[in-house]
């Protein structure tokens, strides 16, 4: 078994070294396609995590009228808490809100002498973000509520960007992936043609189709893995650079959730490369290796 494996690996290695230019072409195309797919994947993951982590995705704020009595505010709170969609309701009294605001702006403005302009506020957290519009509408029905604030618009923007990245990533990455598939297929096809003599000799000596095809399939997988490793390195380096740049430009984004773990990228992209490389090579050998 070890001898057999050594023989197959030796044949694969010889073939890889023999057609260096074609190998480089196939590996670089696979790399570019996987960079685009991997980059899009990472961006989507990050956007999705950001969207998921937005508190506003689950929360709506009901700003009460200045004239609303505290007891009635408590009543509304109780009514909202009774709704099955609602996870919890917090009533922030105007005094507390004002204290918080003063502390927040303490370094910039002195608000100590000003009268409190803030009303009471109800913060409603829902269990499912899908139910947020209905709960917001329910809060707005109360005559004591001045306005309802939720961040559906911001959330919508994140989702739209996410959708755009998905389409661009999938579209361009898909096209390049197709190019990589064709190129790897073609490389293996040309390798098969250049090794017709070996193929025929192996066949006449009684080698099975599977054992003749295996070195070619391993060659395609190697091209895919090599392209995938390069792509993973490029994606991770680019992501690190972009992340630093974005945070330096917009510091408030430093609390964004982390992206895909590097290990996932380092395993995922070469794995995907091996899969497509192996499939292409298998397809080429099905068509061109005969006994």
């Amino acid at each position: 078994m070890i001898d057999r494996l050594r023989f197959v690996l030796q044949e694969t290695r010889e073939s890889l070294l023999r057609n260096a230019t074609m190998q480089a072409a196939a590996i670089s195309t696979a790399c570019i396609a996987l960079v685009l797919l991997g980059g899009a994947g990472m961006a989507l993951y990050k956007l999705d995590a950001t969207a998921q982590s937005l508190p506003s995705r689950f929360e709506a704020e009901g700003v009460l009228k200045m004239s609303a009595p505290r007891a009635q505010a408590q009543q509304i709170k109780t009514q909202l808490e009774a709704m099955p969609e609602v996870e919890r309701v917090t009533l922030t009294p105007r005094e507390v809100a004002w204290e918080q605001e003063k502390q927040k702006l303490a370094n910039d403005v002195n608000l100590a002498d000003l009268p409190n302009p803030l009303p009471d506020k109800l913060t409603v957290r829902v269990r499912d973000p899908q139910t947020l519009p209905a709960v917001s509408a329910r809060i707005a029905q109360s005559p004591l509520v001045e306005e309802v604030i939720d961040s559906r618009k911001e959330l919508q923007t994140v989702l739209e960007v996410s959708r755009l990245v998905r389409w661009i990533g999938l579209g361009a990455g898909g096209l390049l992936l197709l190019a990589a598939l064709i190129l790897i297929y073609n490389t293996v096809r040309l390798t098969i043609f250049s090794r017709q003599r070996e193929v025929r000799v192996m066949a006449l000596l009684g080698a099975t189709l599977r054992s003749i095809r295996l070195p070619f399939i391993l060659e395609g997988m190697t091209q895919g893995v090599a392209g995938g490793v390069l792509a993973a390195l490029l994606v991770l380096l680019t992501a690190a650079f972009l992340s630093d740049y974005v945070v330096s430009q917009w510091p408030f984004l430093k609390d964004m959730p982390p992206g895909l773990p590097p290990l996932v990228v380092m395993i995922g992209l070469p794995g995907l490369g091996a899969l497509i490389g192996g499939l292409c090579a298998w397809w080429a050998t099905l068509r061109y290796v005969r006994i």
């Binding site: 003599r197 025929r200 006449l204 000596l205 009684g206 099975t208 189709l209």
Partner: peptide, 24 residues
């Protein structure tokens, strides 16, 4: 059947006319 052919060929010695040896 094609899958049986290799096992039969193992019981034959074949000297092909063209390119009998691998040049490398």
């Amino acid at each position: 059947k094609p899958r049986e052919l290799p096992y039969l060929r193992r019981r034959m010695g074949i000297v092909p006319q063209d390119y009998p040896l691998l040049p490398r």
